[in-house]
Nucleic acid binder design. Sequence first.
DNA 1: TACACTCGAGTTA
DNA 2: ATAACTCGAGTGT
Lengths: 328, 328
Amino acid sequence: MNPTGQPVGNKNSDQPYQSHLATKADLVTSHTETRAGFLALALEKNRQATPFITQARALKAVALPLARPANLLDLPNIQAALVAAAGISNKAAGHLDAATKEQAVRDFIANFLDVAGADWVDELVYRFLITRGDTIGGSMRNIGGAIAQRTLTRNIIATLSLANVPFEWRHAKTKKWLTGSSSDPDIEFQTNALSWTNAQGPRTLRYNYSPAIVGKNIDLCLLACAAQDFDTAVLDGSLYVALGELKGGIDPAGADEHWKTARTALLRIRDAFSRLNLAPASVFVGAAIVSGMADEIWTQLGNGTLTNAANLTDDNQLASVCRWIIDL
Amino acid sequence: MNPTGQPVGNKNSDQPYQSHLATKADLVTSHTETRAGFLALALEKNRQATPFITQARALKAVALPLARPANLLDLPNIQAALVAAAGISNKAAGHLDAATKEQAVRDFIANFLDVAGADWVDELVYRFLITRGDTIGGSMRNIGGAIAQRTLTRNIIATLSLANVPFEWRHAKTKKWLTGSSSDPDIEFQTNALSWTNAQGPRTLRYNYSPAIVGKNIDLCLLACAAQDFDTAVLDGSLYVALGELKGGIDPAGADEHWKTARTALLRIRDAFSRLNLAPASVFVGAAIVSGMADEIWTQLGNGTLTNAANLTDDNQLASVCRWIIDL
DNA sequence: TACACTCGAGTTA
DNA sequence: ATAACTCGAGTGT
C-alpha cells in the first residue's frame, strides 16, 4: 500500500512472472546455454553408443567366418540385427509382420551384401550401425526430456529445503511415497511426484499424468491434495491448482515447433477445465526459447492465458517459478 | 433442389468435406497404409545410406595406416568425420566454435580410441556411422515431407488434367513459371507453385510460403491471383482463398504430436486473418490420422473452424480435396 | 542469417 | 494393444 491506501502499481504488477521477467527478451535462451546444451548432449550420446559398438563388433565376429552373406539367415541370434541392417528401425519393425521383415532381409542381402564382394561383412556391420545411430538418436531425445524433468525436480526440492518445508516423493517404479531428504541426490532420478504442505494446504505435484478431465498427458499437474489422496483428488477438477508444459529441448530450431505443440496442449487443458467452469493456473517452462515464441508467451502472460513461464536454462527464472509452485 | 423448391439437406450437407467423409472414422489411417509407409521408408533409407557407407570405407582406409589414433589430427581432410565420430552432429557443430570441436575430438581420441587397443580403427569408423545414422534419419524426415508434397501435387495436376484445365507451374530452383503438361512426371519434383483459372478467376497455389500477414511458413497457400501477380497479391489478405497444413508423416505415434503443431499453425493463420476481418478457407491433409485427433478434426469441420480435411493415404479423399481446391 | 519448417527415432502410462 | 509423450537429426527461405 502507498500512503493513499491504494494498491501499489498497475493491475499486473503482482503477476508471478513479473518476479523474474521484466521483458519478453528475458525469456530468450542465451547462445552460451545453447552451446553448453549441445555439447553435453554429444558427450552423453557417446556413452549411449558404447553398447551398440559392442554389438557391432559381435556382429562382425559372427559374420566373418561365414562363406556367403546368405548364411546369415541361418543364425537365429542375429535376426534382429539383420532387420536393423536392412534399414528397418525397431519402430518400423513393430508395424511389419515376420514375413515382410524376412523378405526385407533377403532383399537386403541380395541388393547390398551379395554385391559388396569380399567386404560384405563391413557392409553389413556399417548398415547395422547406420540404423542404430538413429536408434541412439531416438533414445537421446528421451534422455533430454528426462534430464529436464530432473532439473526441475532438483530445483523444487532445493526450494522446499531452503524454505524448510518437509516433503514426500513418489518412487516411480514402486509407486511408494517416501520421506524426502534434501541430501539424497537420487530422488530426482527416481521420482514422478512430490508432495508438501503450504499455507493453503497440502499440495501434490505429479509429472506426466493424464487426468481423465483432459484425456491427454500433462507434464506438470499440481493438485490441492495430500500424497495419499491423489488418486481420488484427480477426479475433482476443483482440486487442480496448476498445470504446465515442460520442454527440455535445447535446439533453437525446434523451439517454435515444440512451443506450437505446447500451445495446443495448454489449449486442450484450458478447454477441458473451462467446460467445468474452472481455470487453474498454467505454466510453460522451456529450455529453448526464441524471439518469436517469446512474443507469444509474453502475450499469453499479459492476457492471463498463461499464468507463469520461465526459461529452464536461467537459474533465477527457474528458482522464481519453483518458489511460485511450492507456495501456490 | 427438391420438388418443394427448398435446398436439399441440412445446413451442413454441402460442406466440402462431406463429399468424401461420412464419419470421423473415415479420417483414420488404415494399418495397411501405415505398414506400406514404413516399408517404403526403409527402402529409401537404404538408398540414402550408401554414400555414408562409402565415406566409412574411406575413413577406414585413411586411418588403417596410422600408427596411433592421435595421428588422425594431422589429416585435414577427415576433421569433419572426426567431429562426427566424436558424437557431434552437423547441427550441433553449427553451434560450437572450432576450439570446442577440436577439444571434443581430442577427448574422443583419448577416451574411446586410445583405449580401444588394436581395434581402434573400427571404433572410429563405427562411431562415425552412429552419428551418420542420425544424419540419415534427419534427411529421411525431410524426404518424407517432400514425398507428401509431391503426392499432393501429382493429384492436383491429375485433377486439373482430368478437367481439361490448363495450368502453369513454378520451377522452385529457377523461379520461372512454365506451361504445365499432364504427361511430364518431373513437375512434381521441381515445382513449388501451380496456377490455373477456374470459374471464379485465376488461382495460384504456393507451397511452403510465409505471408507477411501471418509471419510463419504455411504449407499450402491458395490465392485468387494469376501466377505473375503472386508477389503483389500476397500483400492483400482478401486474395487468400484457402490455407492449409499438409502432414506427410506415416507414424501413428507422431500423429497427435504433429496435429498439435498443425492446430497451432492453423490457429495462427486464423488469428492473423481475423485481425483483418477475413476468414479464408482452411484445410488439413495428413497421412497419419489416429482416432483422438480425428475427433478434433471432425469437431473443427463441424463448427467451421476447419473447412476441409483428408487423409493423404486415401485416394478418394485426396481426389475430393483436389477437386475442391481447383474449383475454390 | 535467423527463423521455422520436415517427421520418426525412441519412450512410457 | 493403444495412445500420446520425449526432442533434435536434417531441410529451405
